[in-house]
Design a protein around this nucleic acid. Sequence first.
DNA 1: GCTGACTACTATGCTTTCCGTAGTACGTCA
DNA 2: TGACGTACTACGGAAAGCATAGTAGTCAGC
Lengths: 110, 110
Amino acid sequence: MTQLRKGLMELCLLRLLRGGESYGYEIVRRLRSLPALAVSESTVYPVLARLRAEGFVRVREAPSPAGPPRRVFSLSARGRARLAEYNAHWNAVIADLDSISHPSPKESDP
Amino acid sequence: MTQLRKGLMELCLLRLLRGGESYGYEIVRRLRSLPALAVSESTVYPVLARLRAEGFVRVREAPSPAGPPRRVFSLSARGRARLAEYNAHWNAVIADLDSISHPSPKESDP
DNA sequence: GCTGACTACTATGCTTTCCGTAGTACGTCA
DNA sequence: TGACGTACTACGGAAAGCATAGTAGTCAGC
């Protein structure tokens, strides 16, 4: 089932950041609360680095109440465009998969 | 975007076979007609082999009107159980991803 | 009876992504 | 000072999809 997540993390993070800026550690915690998408640091940080390298997110430093400073990520304009593309593709996948389940209304298996 | 398909092929094939038995070449053609799931032989055949090795599908030989005999696949009882599991997980993924998009009903960005 | 086209499947090697495990370093509080 | 929570980094492995190429069976048409 872990394979189903391949390529989904990017969409997850873009969507998360659309709701407002956040930092790695918090993102990990929020994703952990979703059973089907639960991931660990070693998954999230590389994706964030990738998104940053491609200019989809911006980073700024912010002090933490306890611990080292945070790297706070926020969506860039390119990131928003990317998210739109990604959402479209994701919806297409869902639609196509649905079309397999319901091939035509004439067939109904008992 | 190809990464989004990781782990999805198994679900695709199980769903396709739920609608009735089929063989590799036809499955490839049917998937090619779905833009978001379009794949080639080199993707489909290994997945079919995997499903067969794990007992999720049965195989029988059938003559072809033109060409070598076909290997016709059909869902086994285990395969149907697997499909149910897979569907449940898939729906969970969709739900969790949706919950990211709509974190709480108080926020609505224009 | 040979060529070409279509059918059906096989083989190999690469790339990407997720993830387990481990480690580093900062800061507060007792 | 040392234990604890925070925040991030590094490394290696595994699995799936996919490009590319190849094998082989059957039939049509000349």
